[in-house]
């Protein structure tokens, strides 16, 4: 499979009055064509910020992308999204890379109709007339499962439920048949039943449109049925990356093992206590030169405190940044 997005050594910092926040520290990963990649991590692990950095959607200042590349295989050949000027970037945003954000309640403009909010993307990127855009918007609304799409075209966000609003967000994201859809915790603000509907909608659209997806979430349970591959992020770094089955069956990093242990399961016989990971993530204003998980790790030994582990291959498409796991694998 060819890669569609190749991120190399991404570094993003926030320059705040309280000091420099190291949000993303040297993150590299690949997104393959047609793949669904889940980025998993707790709040503040840098999963959203790394995506927003690539797309130039962070408020700058205070944010600053201080290094790295994001090579995107665009319609007009490969480009580095980090270096792209504003105009060229906005051609890609919404046109070739679509977004779905976390809270559909605040992510839609409250005083514009949803029809207008979808069709303005179409007009911007496809250069079609308002008339054509309206027809296409109505069919998009139908496609994302909104009943009475013709009627709903003139609806305002406050007249729709949370789930319906998120469907509208998805319609915006896929309107121009993008190559990648980045979904930033798209189900977090929704009821569990609605969550399942949205996940299924994503699966459907993926089959129909063959779009590559990056799904940012902290819900490992959700990832299992959805993603092809998983990246585990912690303190602005990737700790482990593996195909989804491999990760669940054979997690290597103590943090991943801890996360999976904290997940309630229905398929075990006896009822077990959920495991929690002691401690809290490190202060992100301090630049860490050793393993960022060492403070909370039961297996940490001297080397973990002295150098930073790099992502090392431990199996097919399975990499992990952990000295303990590497020694164990040997």
């Amino acid at each position: 499979m060819a890669s569609i997005l190749k991120v190399k050594n991404l570094v993003t910092k926030f320059h705040t009055v309280d000091g420099v926040v190291n949000a993303v520290n040297d993150v590299s990963f690949l997104l393959e064509d047609g793949e669904t990649l889940a980025i998993v991590g707790e709040s503040g692990s840098g999963k959203s910020v790394s995506m927003m950095s690539i797309m130039g959607l962070l408020p700058m200042p205070p944010a600053k992308v201080e290094g790295g590349q994001a090579l995107f295989n665009s319609k007009d050949g490969p480009v580095d999204l980090i270096q792209l000027p504003y105009e060229a970037m906005s051609d890609i945003r919404g046109g070739q890379i679509g977004f779905v954000f976390q809270d559909p309640g605040t992510s839609l403009n409250p005083i514009l109709t949803i029809g207008k909010q979808i069709s303005e993307t179409l007009i911007r990127h496809l250069g079609i007339s308002g008339r054509e855009a309206k027809d296409k918007t109505v069919s998009l609304l139908a496609e994302v499962g909104i009943p009475d799409p013709t009627l709903r075209f003139d609806a305002f966000p406050f007249q729709l439920s949370g789930g319906m609003r998120q469907r509208v967000m998805i319609a915006i994201a896929v309107a121009c048949a993008p190559r990648i859809v980045i979904a930033d915790e798209p189900t977090t603000a929704l009821d569990v039943t609605i969550q399942a509907q949205i996940v299924n909608l994503f699966k459907e659209l993926r089959v129909k449109m063959g779009v590559s997806t990056i799904w940012i979430t902290h819900d490992l349970g959700l990832v299992a049925g959805l993603a092809d591959r998983v990246l585990v992020m912690y303190a602005g770094q990737i700790l482990e990356s593996a195909q989804v089955d491999e990760l669940y069956e054979n997690p290597k990093h103590p943090y991943t093992i801890g996360l999976l242990g904290a997940l309630p399961r229905l398929d075990t016989q006896e009822s077990k206590r959920l495991v929690s990971i002691d401690g809290t993530p490190p202060d992100s204003t301090i630049l860490i030169h050793h393993c960022p998980f060492a403070w909370r790790c039961a297996h940490a030994f001297e080397r973990c405190w002295n150098e930073k582990p790099a992502l090392t291959t431990v199996g097919e498409k399975h990499t992990v940044a952990c000295f303990y796991a590497m020694e164990e694998g040997r």
Binding site: N109, R124, H125, M169
Partner: peptide, 15 residues
């Protein structure tokens, strides 16, 4: 700083 302005930027609209 509202989310919907970020959405507008994510749609690639002109500034």
């Amino acid at each position: 700083n509202e989310d919907f302005v970020r959405t507008a930027f994510s749609k690639g609209l002109h500034r």
